[in-house]
Write a protein that binds this DNA or RNA. Structure first.
Lengths: 99, 99
DNA sequence: TTTATATATTAGAATATTCTAATATTAATA
DNA sequence: TATTAATATTAGAATATTCTAATATATAAA
């Protein structure tokens, strides 16, 4: 097995959880602090921090501290592109009543 | 939690396994039979069948029988596009020695 | 320095995924 | 019909993921 498929799969694992997708979608334009993400999603702080840590470890997001807050942002606009392509496939299907 | 994120995540789970990514990459141009996929990947038949079943259940691939063989193909060219965007991110990183 | 706020980490139970081995099914051919 | 080749399914052990609760750490403000 070509090792690149393993790395690729590992990266895509980030997209395999609804909370992480919601976070990515929130970060598509601006950086947000952990608390802002917690508030916008209504998900617990510990869990958001864990998901952010996972995404940071895979290089999908980066963080920088400003005072008391830590702001997270996407590292690569292509992430949003991939997100939107898959979302487009889903929207096509919804239009065609596949679900 | 918006249910669309759940569906989206569920679809992306397909991409979170190296064997499935290898299969998708093999199918990018032509349909292939199960045995052809087994031979090209060197992975066991049962396992390939399982992965194909997973991808079919998510609507990523479709199958049609022709005689003794069942041929699998991608259902949507956007799948390849999403695959290639992520692969592009990885290639950028490899060039920049991030791994 | 104490307190409050923001974020991170840890532990662990519940659940999900993955692979292998064994077996079943399906369709062509002898 | 019996056999063979191709594909699918099942069971189960090993491993991975997810969430919650509890706790730790870091920074700013009182």
């Amino acid at each position: 097995m070509n090792n690149l498929y393993e790395i690729h799969a590992d990266m895509c694992k980030v997209f395999s959880n609804p909370t992480r997708l919601e976070i990515l979608n929130l970060l598509r334009s601006d950086a947000l602090s952990v608390m802002e993400i917690v508030e916008k999603t209504g998900i617990g702080q510990a869990n958001i921090s864990q998901h952010l840590a996972i995404m940071r470890s895979k290089g999908i997001v980066a963080s920088k501290r400003r005072g008391k807050n830590v702001y997270y942002n996407l590292t690569n606009p292509k992430i949003v592109k991939a997100f939107d392509i898959i979302r487009g496939v889903l929207n096509e299907r919804l239009r065609n009543r596949v679900f």
